[in-house]
């Protein structure tokens, strides 16, 4: 809905300010489509809009740890030119600078340092966490306040999803014996990704769930959960797959071991690609308006944008479901009883 209004407003601004050749998209401003990739990437500042020459931004903390200098704190605005709001090597602070591609470097290239900045995506995550905690704790409070009654309000919205994750994902994939142990994790995973995907669809929101670092983290958690819960049967299937001729074992066993990694890796890549690609498609349709600067393209793009946005809402849900489902499936194979086969 918000993006729809944004699209409409962009369309109107082009229509009314058609004379202005200086209309440019948000982003680096170097070309009319240059905002595309930086938009789906992480950033040290949170840029909302550029109105005339005024940049509406939220400067974010830059936190750097280096073995020689310890923890250092800066603000992203420290690294910018105050007039143009551009990052660059010329605006370094404390021996660090952020380049035009939003990468943090040390002026002394040989220094090692670790970047723990509260970036745009980290801020996004804090917002998602706040939404999640609010939603779920108010749901839980309903049950505490009115035990044994039918769900009302937020609880009536959350409860069916909780039941779905518990019964359709955890129970069917993991089985009766172990599913209760993993249900809280799967619920957290599902809602975290889902809310992250949906919040990420807002204009100028950070693309957290479409960031490879975030999906990698979740994928590693899935890997850890699978490997640490693997029972005897699970490892036996990897190192001594039943029914495989001995001659094939030197081929099958490495493949199986590799499979331990590729399974979560597929999750990492799938979520990253699905969400990032969706954002790029949406941004591309916006970019078309600026490239062609024509009313017809503007109308057509806007119609397409609304359509793509609906698809993205669907994708947001499907991807959260798929990630949770496959995590449950991997955990399910790890804890499965032997007689199941």
């Amino acid at each position: 809905m918000v993006r729809k209004f944004l699209c409409l407003s962009i369309l109107l601004s082009i229509f009314w300010l058609g004379f202005s050749n200086s209309v440019q998209a948000a982003g680096d401003g170097e070309s009319k489509t240059g905002f595309l990739i930086p938009h789906v990437m992480d950033n040290y500042e949170w840029h909302f809009a550029t109105i005339g020459h005024t940049h509406v931004t939220l400067p974010l903390p830059v936190i750097i740890y280096s073995p020689d200098q310890g923890l250092e704190f800066f603000l992203s605005s420290d690294f910018q030119n105050h007039e143009t709001h551009k990052f660059g090597k010329d605006y370094g602070v404390g021996g660090y600078y952020i380049d035009e591609n939003y990468d943090l470097h040390a002026l002394d290239e040989l220094r090692t340092f670790y970047d723990f900045s509260i970036t745009k995506n980290v801020m996004m995550m804090f917002i998602i966490i706040a939404i999640l905690l609010y939603l779920m704790i108010s749901t839980a409070n309903h049950y505490k306040r009115l035990p044994g009654t039918a769900p009302k309000g937020i609880a009536s919205f959350i409860e069916p999803i909780v039941i779905f994750v518990r019964d359709e994902i955890a129970l069917t994939q993991i089985g009766h014996k172990h599913y209760r142990r993993f249900t809280p994790y799967l619920l957290t995973l599902f809602f975290f990704i889902w809310v992250g995907n949906l919040v990420g669809l807002f204009p100028e929101a950070g693309n957290l769930t479409g960031n490879i670092a975030f999906t990698l983290t979740l994928g590693v958690f899935t890997l850890i959960l699978t490997v640490f819960n693997g029972n005897k049967g699970y490892w036996k299937h990897i190192f001594m797959p039943p029914g495989v001729p001995v001659l094939l074992l030197p081929i099958i066993v490495p493949v199986e071991i590799f499979g331990i990694l590729t399974k979560p890796a597929s999750l990492v890549v799938r979520l990253f690609v699905a969400i990032t690609a969706g954002h790029i498609v949406i941004l591309s349709f916006i970019a078309l308006i600026f490239v062609f600067e024509s009313l017809a393209v503007g109308v057509a793009s806007t119609v397409m944008l609304v359509f793509i946005n609906f698809i993205e809402i669907l994708v947001a849900t499907i991807q959260a479901y798929v990630f949770t489902l496959f995590t449950a499936m991997y955990v399910g194979t790890a804890v499965a009883e032997e007689d199941h086969h």
Binding site: D115, F116, T119, V122, M125, F214, L218
Partner: peptide, 8 residues
């Protein structure tokens, strides 16, 4: 990015 992995 290491930072985002850490914070995530």
């Amino acid at each position: 990015g290491l930072g985002l992995v850490f914070w995530s």
